[in-house]
Design a binder for these strands. Sequence first.
DNA 1: TATAATTCCTAGCGGTTAACTAGGCATCAT
DNA 2: ATGATGCCTAGTTAACCGCTAGGAATTATA
Lengths: 141, 141
Amino acid sequence: MKLSTKGRYGVMACYDLACHHGDSPVPLKAIARRQGISPGYLEQLIGHLRRAGIVRSVRGPQGGYVLARSPDEITVGDIIRVLEGPIAPVECVSQDPGDFRHCGRTEGCVTRPVWEKLRDSMVRVLDSITLKDLLDEGGRE
Amino acid sequence: MKLSTKGRYGVMACYDLACHHGDSPVPLKAIARRQGISPGYLEQLIGHLRRAGIVRSVRGPQGGYVLARSPDEITVGDIIRVLEGPIAPVECVSQDPGDFRHCGRTEGCVTRPVWEKLRDSMVRVLDSITLKDLLDEGGRE
DNA sequence: TATAATTCCTAGCGGTTAACTAGGCATCAT
DNA sequence: ATGATGCCTAGTTAACCGCTAGGAATTATA
């Protein structure tokens, strides 16, 4: 029941970009250094975020990455979904049709409501926290 | 962010035992057959549940397993913790000292509060649902 | 125009875990 | 004494995680 580093690194990287929102593009190396992430690995992760429209890239010298939307329009859930897949403790309660898989057990599976409640509570938390919230918090503490 | 089959199978097996609570011991094979779980694999899982004091075993013919406590005293969280480990999306917010691991990043890690909120909401859901709740629900639906 | 800083892409790799299977031993009602 | 059951450990296959490697494309700047 653990997140992989993908999700964590992704959130950290996006937080880093949020800190520099409005500035010139942030090179990947700088993010990797500040957040303590292997640059090569982060490159793969940020590629997903780019293709998902969460960050934008600028190539060439002085290039780097910027958030594609403002920090208050990007939730932690958005990032997690890109890097970890649908937020669902088991496939049979996935809200993404591509990920959903019927467990094939007796109809009226008794345990499914448990996983649905768990999923809902996870989604509620992750979709309620924006990068802006993290910025504000970082400033206060 | 998925549960493994361990947790799911464990809850299903315990639900099966709850259905027969008060009766004579339920042989592992019967549980495995009804729940569609590989008997050999379930044997390993139920071994953990036994050592954790959630189920009791009776050896010999007519033997099998029974719940060690009544269904309203066993939560889904109890079962998950035995089979999946501490309920924590990342190790640095694990409430189990053995599992906890400091991420070693800059102090005042900005993302930790996110994982703490997520953990709390997961724990709240899983610890609030007992096997009795599943029984009642199975009866109604 | 040449250089170098950057992003982009894909392949591979070593380690770990998941989900079993296999096989043998211990217990004990009948 | 038998056979049904639980108990234990060691394998096995496949997938995935967290990287590393190496090169191609882009482009600001000297």
